[in-house]
Amino acid sequence: MKLVELVLLVTLILSIALLLTFAYMYLTPTSEIRNLAVFYLVTTYNPQLPFYTVNSPEAVTAIVWDYRGLDTLFETAVFYLALIAALALARKLYVEATPEFNKGNEGLSVIVKTVTKITSPMIIAVGASIGLHGHLTPGGGFQGGATIAVAPMIIIIVFSVLYLLTKRVTTEKMLLLRSLGLIGIGLTTISAFIIGLTAGRTTYVFQNMPKFDAPLGLPDKLNGVLISGTLWFFNLFEMLAVASGFTMAFIVLMLVKKEG
């Protein structure tokens, strides 16, 4: 028995060592940068290339919401369709707005509750910072919104979903906020187009910075503060929509099933 264990252990260690050796040989990043990456790195924040740049130092957000913005728009649409489907499946299965059930002694101990009371606003601050700096540092609307949604989720688990409802965080309000976020995203996609329409110049749907044949675009700076045109608005509205969408889903999932 001991021998078998020893052999097994040695085999395991040797196979992991072999795997690591080969992984090291094949997966080491090279020092060369591919042409595609060079293009994005050179153009993402480059005032000397006015018709190519996005004026955002964060290349990932620039790619996600500008270079391939249409793709992201449809990804957002897929996410919300999934959410709508989940809510549609759960309709009439839950009861809401029943604060009289809330006796105040549900959930975890008073220690966890008190700590949650202080940390929830801090979580929201961190999430908002991630979302609102999406065009400057890694992060963005989805990440920020998902971080913010952690606060209601913790409150639901630590207190109870009825506590959230007594604080008047209802699915109707979350639906309103989410719809506002989605309308904002929709308006942002056509903002440059509307500017061009009113000025009588050529502009495109989903345009951000000025282009060769469409010299009108969104400003990269507002009052000297870098907002990278549409990127800031996309991140803001996406954060709003994701945070409220997730909160709504958490409430519906944790609500008591209606009897009968």
Partner: peptide, 27 residues
Amino acid sequence: TFIVYIVFTGSVSIYDLMTGFIVAVVT
């Protein structure tokens, strides 16, 4: 909230102070 926002952001430009103020008031 404002203190956490500024510490997490790690910068004190006008943009950070303004957005931090709005987030702090709402929260």
